[in-house]
């Protein structure tokens, strides 16, 4: 539908909305303009509908609304105050993982030596050099260390109240 409003329409609608009588030139225009007549019918209808009383329904109690708003504000203030703490929990978790990575990188050789002493002889013998771990042993140690580290950090995070 193309939008082609009549140039007289705003004045005619303003008069119809207020229930005012139209000046003679506008009344003459209205008589000859079907589009304006259609628009006036709609506006007049709205004016009458708005004046009609609606259902005699009791309104919500304003004191309930007041207290609801106060509670919501308090809750929002609490949430705003605890937001930095929530953010810090994620920082702690990231710092935990970073520390674990640094520790592993720093003590890697020592851990390998320790593991070489602990791992059963059969697994170690699979490797050509006696001081170097087999790929299987290395994988086991890595997975085990990562799992233990992740469990500790997750437990720590849960204890601090963050999401599990």
């Amino acid at each position: 539908m193309t939008f082609r409003a009549c140039s007289q329409e705003p004045d005619i609608l303003a008069a119809a909305a207020d229930g005012r009588a139209l000046p003679a030139p506008l009344a003459a225009h209205l008589a000859s303009c079907p589009s304006c007549r259609e628009q006036v019918v709609a506006v007049t209808f709205l004016r009458v509908l708005a004046a009609a009383p609606v259902a005699s329904h009791p309104l919500p109690d304003p004191s309930v609304i007041w207290w609801k708003a106060q509670l919501t504000r308090r809750w929002q203030a609490e949430r705003a105050a605890s937001a930095p703490i929530e953010r810090m929990r994620w920082v702690e978790l990231a710092a935990g993982f970073a520390s674990l990575a640094v520790f592993l990188a720093w003590q890697w050789q020592g851990l390998l030596n320790l593991a070489a002493r602990v791992v059963p002889a059969g697994v170690a013998a699979a490797s050509s050099a006696p001081q170097v771990l087999s790929p299987t042993a290395l994988m086991l140690i890595t997975i085990g260390t990562a799992s233990v580290g992740a469990m500790i950090l997750a437990a720590l995070h849960r204890r601090l109240g963050g999401a599990p």
């Binding site: 939008f3 628009q39 709609a42 209808f45």
Partner: peptide
């Protein structure tokens, strides 16, 4: 807004016309 308003008024007038409240009659 003016375009949508124009169309809404036109639609309302159409509904009123269907119910027998044509232009020129007061609903």
């Amino acid at each position: 807004v003016p375009v949508l308003l124009f169309r809404a008024r036109r639609k309302l007038a159409g509904l009123l016309r269907k119910k027998g409240y044509g232009p020129g009659e007061r609903p």
